[in-house]
Design a protein around this nucleic acid. Structure first.
Length: 591
RNA sequence: UGACCGAUUGUGUAAUGGUAGCACGACAGGUUUUGAUCCUGUUAGUCAAGGUUCGAAUCCUUGUCGGUCAGCCA
C-alpha cells in the first residue's frame, strides 16, 4: 500500500529538523493541565497533539499536573483528567508527575538565582506592585526593595518559607528590569506567600512558585524536548528562556516552548469559567451533561475517541486564530460510527399501522435484517413482524407535498426487510387527529424485494407493536443558537442559549434486541441517527442519548420548500397591496 | 501612540521563490431495501499598495485588520 503523503504541520517540521540535525535523539513531550476543572474538547486537541507527535517520532509523553496554586486545585480533578486521557487511549510515560514534586528543587533554584544577584524579596503590597509595573507603553518604577543585599534576600526568603510572614506580605521577584516592552519581563514574581493547604503537600509549604518559575523548570527536570502550549503564552516565552538561561547545565536537554492556536468551536463556549456557570446555574445537569463540550460530556453523548482523533487531524495545527465549524466534528463522528455501529429499527415518534389483509392470528413471523451494511462481519438478526406495527409519524402525510415519497393514501412503500404496503385509509379521533393508518400488504414482497420488478421510492423503518420495547430517548440540540455566543460585545453568552437544547421522548418503540444493550453501547436507529445507552438507563427504563443525527437532505428540502412558500406568500401580499394602492391612486386622479 | 504573534475559497488547512491543492460545507448528477453510506462533477481564495525577481501566497517596505500582554491565576 502506498503511503499517502501528508504535509507536516509546523510542529512536526520543527521536530523533524531537530531529529535530523541531531539536536535531539528522541523527542519528549508533555501534557500539563492544572487540576482545577474538567477537560474539554480544546484540551483534547492539545492531548492528541502531544501524544501523537511523540508516537509518530517514537518519543515519549508525560502527564504532569501543574499544581502550584493550592487554593484552586483538587484531587477530584486529577482523577477525572487522568480518566479522560485514558479514555482517549493514551498512556503517559512513567508515573503521573506533579509540579509539586519539584517544590524543593525549585526552592533551591530560587536561592541560587538570589545568590547570582538576580532575585530579590519585595515588601510592597500587591497594589503597589501593580501600580509600579507601568503600562505597556510606559516603563514601570523600580521597587524600593530592589537593591537589597544577597545575604538579606537569602535570609528574608528563608523566613518567607518558614512562615514568618502572613499571606501576601512579601514576594520573591526576578531582577530583570522595569522597562521591558514585554510586561511579563518587568521583575516578574517568582514566589508568593500562601498559607493554604495543598492537595498533595498539605501544609509543608507556605510559599508557592508562580507558573513562570515552575513550568520551564519542570520541563527541564523531565527533560522535555518540545514544550507545546497555546498562543497566549507567547509573551511568556522570553521569561521561560530567561529562567533556563540561569539554570541550564551543559549536556542537558534544553526544552523549547512552541505555541499553537487553541481550538474554538462554533455554537459553543470553551472557557472553564463559562462552562462552570452553566453547571452551577443548572442550565445543564453537570459537567458530563451530553450537551457540554467537555470530554466527559462528549463521552456520555456517544462520541468515540477515534472520532476526536480524526477531528484533531482534520483541523490541523497552526498559529492563526480559528473558529471551527461544529459540522466538521459531527462529520468526523458520523464517519467513524457509520463503519462501526450496528443498525436497529426504532420508531422515535410512533403512529399505529394496521395491515388489514394480514391474516388474523397469524403465527409470529421473523424477518432477516442486516446489522451493518458497512461491515460484513456484523452479520444479521431476526426481526419480528405482525399485523399491527408502528411507523414514524413523519413518514405519513395525508396530503403529501411534492417529492414526498413516503406513505400517503393510495401510495405503496417498502417496510425495510419486510413487505411492500399500500395505504388504504386512516382513522381519526374526534379532533381530527390520525390515530391509525390502514394498509394492505403484498405477501409476495417478503423481505422487501419487489416480486414483479415494480419499484417503490420509499423505504420505511418500523417496529412490530406486540414486540415493541418502550425506550426513552434524550435528544440534544446545540446548546447555543448563535455561532459565537461569547463573541458579542455588551451581551452575555447566556443570552444565546438554545431553549430547546434538550427534548425528552419517553414513548419511542424499539425492536426487541435493544433490551440487550448496556451502558455506552452505540446503535444506529435506521434513518434517524446514532444513539447510545445513557448511564442512567435501567432494565425497566432503557434510555438512549441521541449522539448525532444522520445527514438528512429531505429535511433540508422541506425547510427550503417552507421558506420558499413563505417568501412567495410575502411577495403575493406585496403585489396585492401595490395593486390596491395603484387602483386607489387612479380613482383619485379620475376625481 | 508599546512589544510579540497572525492574515490563503463560507470554515479549517497545505503549497517553505516555480501549475494555489486537500478536507468540511454548498450545489448538480449517479448508485442504493437507510432521502444514510458510496461515487462523479461544479462552486469559490492568496488583506491592501508598492518593491526585489525571468517568476512572489512565499522575500522586503508601508499600511489595514485581528489576537495576546498591565493576577501575588495557569
Amino acid at each position: 500500500m502506498a503511503e499517502e503523503k501528508k504535509s507536516l504541520n509546523f510542529i512536526e517540521q520543527i521536530t523533524e529538523e531537530d531529529l535530523a540535525s541531531g539536536k535531539h535523539k528522541e523527542i519528549h513531550t508533555r501534557f500539563p493541565p492544572e487540576p482545577n476543572g474538567y477537560l474539554h474538547i480544546g484540551h483534547s486537541k492539545s492531548i492528541i497533539l502531544n501524544f501523537e507527535l511523540a508516537k509518530k517520532y517514537n518519543g515519549k509523553t508525560n502527564l504532569r499536573f501543574d499544581d502550584t496554586n493550592p487554593s484552586k486545585e483538587e484531587k477530584e480533578y486529577v482523577e477525572s483528567i487522568s480518566k479522560d486521557i485514558e479514555w482517549l487511549g493514551y498512556e503517559w510515560e512513567g508515573n503521573i508527575r506533579f509540579a509539586s514534586d519539584y517544590f524543593e528543587q525549585l526552592y533551591q533554584w530560587a536561592q541560587y538565582i538570589i545568590k547570582k544577584g538576580l532575585a530579590y524579596v519585595d515588601d510592597q503590597t500587591a497594589e503597589e506592585i501593580t501600580a509600579t509595573r507601568g503600562m505597556p507603553k510606559e516603563p514601570g518604577k523600580e521597587s524600593p526593595y530592589r537593591n537589597r543585599s544577597v545575604e538579606e534576600n537569602l535570609d528574608l526568603f528563608e523566613r518567607m518559607k518558614n512562615g514568618e510572614y502572613k499571606t501576601g506580605k512579601k514576594v520573591l521577584r526576578a531582577k530583570i528590569g522595569m522597562s521591558s516592552p514585554n510586561m511579563n519581563m518587568r521583575d516578574p514574581i517568582m514566589y508568593r506567600i500562601l498559607h493554604a493547604e495543598h492537595h498533595r503537600t498539605g501544609n509543608d509549604w507556605c510559599i508557592y512558585p508562580m507558573y513562570d518559575f515552575t513550568h520551564g523548570q519542570s520541563d527541564y527536570l523531565e527533560q522535555i524536548t518540545h514544550s507545546i502550549c497555546t498562543l497566549e503564552f507567547e509573551n511568556h516565552r522570553p521569561l521561560y528562556d530567561w529562567f533556563l538561561d540561569q539554570l541550564h547545565e551543559e549536556g542537558k536537554i534544553r526544552p523549547r516552548q512552541i505555541e499553537f492556536a487553541r481550538l474554538n468551536l462554533s455554537f459553543t463556549v470553551m472557557s472553564k469559567r463559562k462552562l462552570a456557570e452553566l453547571v452551577e446555574n443548572g442550565t445543564v445537569t453537570g459537567w458530563d451533561d451530553p450537551r457540554m463540550p467537555t470530554i466527559s460530556g462528549l463521552r456520555r453523548r456517544g462520541y468515540t475517541p477515534e472520532s476526536l482523533k480524526t477531528f484533531a487531524d482534520k483541523i490541523g495545527v497552526a498559529k492563526r486564530n480559528n473558529v471551527i465549524d461544529i459540522g466538521l466534528l459531527e462529520h468526523s463522528l458520523r464517519d467513524d460510527l457509520n463503519k462501526k455501529v450496528n443498525r436497529v429499527m426504532t420508531v422515535v415518534d410512533p403512529i399505529k399501522v394496521v395491515i388489514t389483509n394480514y391474516p388474523e392470528g397469524q403465527k409470529e413471523e421473523y424477518l432477516e435484517a442486516v446489522n451493518n451494511p458497512e461491515d460484513e462481519n456484523a452479520g444479521t438478526r431476526m426481526v419480528p413482524f405482525s399485523k399491527e406495527l408502528y411507523i414514524e409519524r413523519g413518514d405519513f402525510m395525508e396530503e403529501p407535498v411534492k417529492k414526498f415519497f413516503r406513505l400517503s393514501p393510495g401510495k405503496e412503500v417498502r417496510l425495510r426487510y419486510a413487505y411492500f404496503i399500500k395505504c388504504t385509509g386512516v382513522e381519526k379521533n374526534a379532533s381530527g387527529e390520525i390515530t391509525e393508518i390502514h394498509c394492505t400488504y403484498d405477501p409476495a414482497s417478503k423481505g422487501g424485494k419487489s416480486p414483479d420488478g415494480r419499484k417503490v421510492k420509499g423505504t420505511l423503518h418500523w417496529v412490530s407493536k406486540p414486540h415493541a420495547v418502550n425506550v426513552e430517548i434524550r435528544q440534544y440540540d446545540r446548546l447555543f443558537e448563535d455561532p459565537a455566543p461569547d463573541g458579542h460585545k455588551n451581551r452575555d453568552f447566556k443570552d444565546y442559549l438554545n431553549p430547546d437544547s434538550l427534548s425528552i421522548n419517553k414513548g419511542a418503540k424499539a425492536e426487541p434486541m435493544v433490551k440487550e444493550s448496556k451502558e455506552e453501547d452505540r446503535l444506529q436507529f435506521e434513518r434517524k441517527g446514532y444513539y447510545c445507552v445513557d448511564r442512567e438507563s435501567t432494565k425497566e427504563n432503557i434510555i438512549f442519548n441521541k449522539t448525532v443525527g444522520l445527514r438528512d437532505s429531505w429535511k433540508k428540502k422541506v425547510h427550503e420548500i417552507r421558506h420558499r412558500r413563505k417568501r412567495e406568500e410575502k411577495e403575493r401580499q406585496r403585489r396585492l397591496q401595490s395593486e390596491r394602492a395603484k387602483r386607489e391612486n387612479e380613482k383619485k386622479n379620475k376625481k
